[in-house]
């Protein structure tokens, strides 16, 4: 069955707007009548990714494909890339600055949270080129 597709541009200039795309996606999933647990897992995973893109990569794009049995979230940026993915996946590891900590993020829980709340998390990254994350949440 053909997927319903949503695209979001994520502004990296303004931290105060970070999270708006995730809020929009959450509203759309709610309108479509998905179970609250599915909506919650998608929302948290995308929100963490969106915040990461704003913090580390000066924004990017989010594309969400909605199928009856799964939701696929693809986040793509042209930021600095992740030099050591294994390290980045460790809870508590973060390269965020003190300024980011003061905003309540950068605890090193972003990628681990995305993994925790999704069925699969695929990371394609190249230093100096960018990062593409593909997350699948089963319905």
């Amino acid at each position: 069955m053909a997927a319903l597709h949503f695209h979001f541009d994520i502004d990296g200039e303004d931290f105060s707007s970070a999270g708006e795309a995730s809020v929009e996606m959450k509203k759309k999933l709610r309108q479509l009548g998905f179970p609250s647990d599915v909506i919650r897992r998608c929302s948290i995973a995308m929100y963490e990714g969106e915040i990461n893109m704003v913090i580390h990569a000066n924004g990017g794009n989010a594309d969400v494909d909605v199928y009856p049995d799964k939701i696929v979230i693809v986040l793509e940026d042209h930021g600095p890339g992740i030099p050591n993915v294994e390290l980045a996946m460790q809870e508590g590891y973060s390269t965020a600055t003190e300024q980011i900590h003061n905003m309540g993020f950068g605890a090193g829980m972003g990628l681990p949270n995305m993994k925790r709340y999704t069925e699969s998390l695929e990371i394609e990254t190249q230093v100096g080129v960018g990062t593409k994350l593909t997350m699948v949440v089963a319905v």
Partner: peptide
């Protein structure tokens, strides 16, 4: 730490915080 809220809070609950920014509401 909003990252910790996302990681560890599980229910539709009350958030008690000293952090002031719009991400508190979005979280």
């Amino acid at each position: 730490m909003m990252s910790d809220v996302l990681a560890f809070a599980t229910n539709q609950s009350v958030l008690i915080t000293g952090l002031l920014n719009p991400q508190v509401v979005r979280t």
